[in-house]
Design a protein around this nucleic acid. Sequence first.
DNA 1: AAACCGTCTTGAATCGATTCATTCAAGAAC
DNA 2: GTTCTTGAATGAATCGATTCAAGACGGTTT
Lengths: 338, 338
Amino acid sequence: MPSGPGAKLTDVAALARVSVGTVSNVLNRPDQVSFDKRTRVLAAIEELGFVRNESARSLRSGSTRSLGMLVLDVRNPFFTDVALGAENVAEDHKHSLILANSAEDAGREQAYLDLFEQQRVQGVLITPFGQVLQRLERMRDRGIPSVLVDRLASTDQFCSVSVDDVAGGATALDHLVSVGSVRPAFVGGPFTLQQVEDRYRGAADAAARAGVPLQLFETPDLKFERGRRIGDLMSNLQSDKRPDAVFAANDQLALGLLQSFAANGLRVPEDVAIVGFDDIDFASQSSIPLTSISQPRQLIGERAAQLLFDEIDDEPGHVHSQVVFTPELVARQSTLRR
Amino acid sequence: MPSGPGAKLTDVAALARVSVGTVSNVLNRPDQVSFDKRTRVLAAIEELGFVRNESARSLRSGSTRSLGMLVLDVRNPFFTDVALGAENVAEDHKHSLILANSAEDAGREQAYLDLFEQQRVQGVLITPFGQVLQRLERMRDRGIPSVLVDRLASTDQFCSVSVDDVAGGATALDHLVSVGSVRPAFVGGPFTLQQVEDRYRGAADAAARAGVPLQLFETPDLKFERGRRIGDLMSNLQSDKRPDAVFAANDQLALGLLQSFAANGLRVPEDVAIVGFDDIDFASQSSIPLTSISQPRQLIGERAAQLLFDEIDDEPGHVHSQVVFTPELVARQSTLRR
DNA sequence: AAACCGTCTTGAATCGATTCATTCAAGAAC
DNA sequence: GTTCTTGAATGAATCGATTCAAGACGGTTT
């Protein structure tokens, strides 16, 4: 019968009639302890229901076993997929991942970075929202490195893992033109998000090359509901003014548009074709499956975590690297009439 | 210019020419410190870039400022919404929420509970997967209480926040019958998940009352891909054997079914009507919007966190309570022909 | 001037696991 | 029989913030 709360290392040592050092060794370097003492200690641990106090452990040893991850929006499946990839790598390194949500709010972002510093996490994976690069540099100088996720590092001060959003934007627009669009539009915002900016720029360049105009619908966020509203707005335009194809800055927006068009009696893709970005699972699961620009979501998380562990383990000799994946078009029904 | 890594409390005290106790007071009870010392201390903190060491803090004070939350599947938007609600309440209490993902794996579930114990979290929010109730009781006896989320506590040993899944199941089936189904089916599993079991039972009872048979398609999980496969399987049935309506145990399954039916040329709802469960955002955003049984997702998370804080704060006099929300039908196009 | 009071401030003791220099035992080498 | 070597075990010192009993200070009252 395990007993009450709060057995500590010394209690275990007393019960097993060994020193505290030996108990600690059983916990951390079990092969350096003789068989019979080891078994005695393990039995004592079991009997007392001893659970090691992580605070004491990391205070003394000076290092925690955790990473912090700060994403723009936990409700966006893109980010939970990235987080999943990162979590798997963290687990391999026997670290845990603390997942936090800045919710596109600069204040929350700062608050969570405070928290990560206080907790002395070993490193941070972050999709930045506000102006945090300076702060991240400072943290790195104090021993908490970070890796930028889904965002190319504009300096050589950080590792980053991202996709080539400009190329992705161009791919999307080329595709729309190739299925016959002559009045394409871009929907997305805010343009302070680098991802949005880049996707737009890629699309705008491609449109210029193709000799078609690109209409712009700027939005304050990238949520479903926003897509719905923009969709309603477009649906009310005269058909010769209405875009015949839309490139949305992410899939949530795109799905909102899709639903709005369906509700307003517009046919997709005949009246309006749609391309999204991210290729979240729900894109293909939608009953008019959505054409999207696919990012290797889990892989992004995995690589980011690997780079972070490189920097953590290897502090002095570490060279920052920028991993850039090329996103791929996945053409589905929302742009392809059958 | 903030200096190097690792300024500690004593450094701050030295620079501000006060004692460590005073610095600690500035941090924790600022109103008990005179104005000029307080400003001196704050200036020193600023100058040194001091960040308090949470490990040391919680070792000495004996308490952390964090909750653990363990969900079945972070990739399911239902759970991220619940987590969001919980996180907001945690934030109000100046606690942070450590979000972890058991991924419907009993081993991971145990591992994360180990972690939470070692970290001495103040409490745990959990959607149990394996047999963990005994363990949770033991943890509570040692001072780490937990609240069951999306799962009715079968004992009076815990607080819980859930919805009435039996009623929800009945509502779903009644609705299908009311729109004309005579050959409804239930899709879901594993039945070791209480939620699945209850939703099925409610539906089965309702079917019996209505005098229709209820076909059962049992699944090993509740993911999209599974729904797609079951959908393909159903689509290949002869039309007089094929269910004319499906109640899926959650929305991800339902959306998989929806997509499969569309791909196989079955019309929804004319050939097959579909009801899901959870009413995640993507349910309504699907281009044939999905009828679903709605749960107050964020509210579930909020109430669960509130109950947990009640128990944390109020340890001796705490009475466990079961909050049960009644889920609501949200009828959309997947069951209503226009 | 002594006694008293409330408000600030002080600093040594403390939380619990880890570390590491030191001790010990037993076998190997000479 | 003595000295070395090796592997295991020991336990006091340590990590950094918090706590709290005790002290300092300034002002009031008697």
